[in-house]
Write a protein that binds this DNA or RNA. Structure first.
Lengths: 232, 232
DNA sequence: CCCATTCCTGAGAATGGGCTGAACGCTTAC
DNA sequence: GTAAGCGTTCAGCCCATTCTCAGGAATGGG
């Protein structure tokens, strides 16, 4: 997934910054604009591989932007961002042709996962595999299935997201704050104790199946998913 | 089904975009125009394998377009698109040759299925098989017949379409929004609860016959049709 | 060895997703 | 005209999931 270009369109600067920073860190090449007119412009000149498009924009709505872009012969898939309460009525027709949508507030890890899923489906660029396998755990991201040493493991959505985030950063300590920022929605208002709870849930389900505990506690720092191959 | 060229003729830009996007993603090579004159032109130069033709066009009606095209020696089959209320009188005599018709509004999955059926019948190009068999379920798309472990299953049209869509994406989680966008008509304005209802109907009919439940619920994500071949 | 800090984990309350039976209107078949 | 089938909505139920909290365990500095 070299040099994948993402165009972000959202009128809220906070969201723009959040997404820009996060996606840039995830290895994407990012360009962000704040309204529909700029979006059309940037789509034409920037030739993005995927577009993150807020449905509610000050000048024109996301659908008009899409239409305009499509009529210019640009077929980059679109990941629509919609407020939670407008999903019911506005979502119809959004998931056509490789497109997808997410409701705000979202989690950063989920956004990255969705982008990769879309790029995988549309095959416009080479990207990561649908299978994420680190050590004894294997995740099938299409089926949302998890296997530990070949045995299926039943995980709740949050457990799944947490495990995926840990596994995509193997042998690297992640602070609870980092985990909270990536796995939980950006407006989550609770305490970090919830990370401890969910790590506990995961361990209870995974440790009986694996040969050794895979999620290690780094006291005073955070957690680390250990993959056998490496380091001290 | 490599490089099948589809010519779309419809004066409503929304429909044009919807069809273009969807068919392009389904693997077709698409060209779209908005009136009869352009259609004749494009048919001559583009040598399409199949034509999607709206019956009501601003300049000339779909039949005149067909006549003109045929007189030029172009024999590509035509799939007419008609409004629901003009079916009775105008449709007569349409399905001669390899032609067919659909009423608006249609569902995207249905359009793709019809196109494949026509191409199959006219044998102008290699295309998908008429039999769709995944796991214990077999669908004969020509006859609209469904068998579970050899036993015939009686399904309503919507049940059939839903099952076909699920089966054409085995071992992959489909969100309710995706299902709604592909199985239901594009102007459907209702809630996603209807997907739950129809999944329930399907399960009630299929599960007693199959060895295990085939449609799995991925809570908080969507549904998945499971084919035994995977796992491990 | 003691203590403070950090972490673990079970219990419980609140939430909300998903399932299903029932009801309604619409169309089609007889 | 009547009955049957179908599509759609809805409400009530069930239960998985989320999140908080608090007591107890583990850790490591002194």
């Amino acid at each position: 997934m070299e040099n994948v270009k993402v165009l972000i369109v959202d009128d809220e600067p906070n969201i723009r910054d959040l997404l820009s920073t996060s996606l840039r860190f995830a290895g994407f090449s990012v360009h962000a604009v704040g309204n529909g007119a700029d979006a059309v412009n940037a789509a034409e000149k920037g030739a993005p591989d995927i577009i993150l498009l807020d449905v509610m924009l000050p000048d024109m709505n996301g659908f008009s932007v899409t239409k305009k872009i499509r009529s210019m012969g640009i077929n980059a898939p679109v990941l629509f961002l919609t407020a939670r309460d407008e999903t019911a009525d506005k979502v119809t027709g959004l998931t056509v042709g490789g497109d997808d949508y997410m409701t705000k507030p979202f989690s950063l890890d989920e956004i990255v996962a969705r982008i990769n899923a879309i790029l995988r489906r549309t095959k416009q660029v080479e990207t990561e595999d649908s299978i994420l396998e680190v050590g004894e755990i294997k995740i099938n991201q299409d089926a949302h299935e998890v296997f530990a040493n070949g045995q299926p493991v039943d995980l709740s959505p949050t457990e799944y997201k947490l495990l995926r985030f840990l596994m995509s950063n193997p042998n690297r300590v992640l602070t609870k704050a980092q985990i909270l920022d990536h796995v939980w929605e950006y407006d989550f208002n609770g305490e970090m104790g919830i990370v401890e709870s969910y790590v506990s849930y995961l361990r209870k389900k995974l440790d009986p199946i694996t040969s050794e505990p895979l999620i290690q506690t780094k006291r005073g720092v955070g957690y680390m998913y250990k993959s056998s191959k490496s380091s001290n």
